[in-house]
């Protein structure tokens, strides 16, 4: 799983059958550097079930974990990354870091 920030949205009318009505978000992975949170330049398209909004910090799961986010054990939905958490706060080391 990775942590990233919602960078944008991808919308499409012609999709795989089980993806109809699902939002697809562009998530830019971020990493914590001394000077703060920096995008690593890697971007992923993730299916969104939690209605993450603009600029939210999220956790993205990959592979079959992403498919379990929707229906546990589902195999035929054409997804390999989905948003599983919208982060309210992060603590690294001893200092609590409220990031958003």
């Amino acid at each position: 799983m990775i942590r990233g920030r919602v960078l944008g949205e991808v919308w499409a009318t012609r999709k795989a059958p089980r993806l109809a009505g699902k939002k697809m978000l562009l998530v830019a992975e971020t990493c914590m550097l001394p000077q703060g949170e920096q995008p690593t330049g890697r971007v992923i398209v993730a299916m969104d079930l939690l209605d993450a909004g603009r600029g939210d910090e999220v956790v993205v799961a990959f592979g079959s974990g992403a498919r379990n986010a929707e229906v546990p054990g589902s195999r035929d939905v054409l997804v390999d990354a989905s948003v599983v958490q919208i982060i309210d706060g992060t603590s690294t080391g001893s200092t609590p870091l409220i990031s958003s």
Partner: peptide, 11 residues
């Protein structure tokens, strides 16, 4: 291919 993109919006 899972979807054919109509538009991409970047905040």
């Amino acid at each position: 291919i899972a979807a054919i993109v109509d538009g991409v919006e970047v905040y």
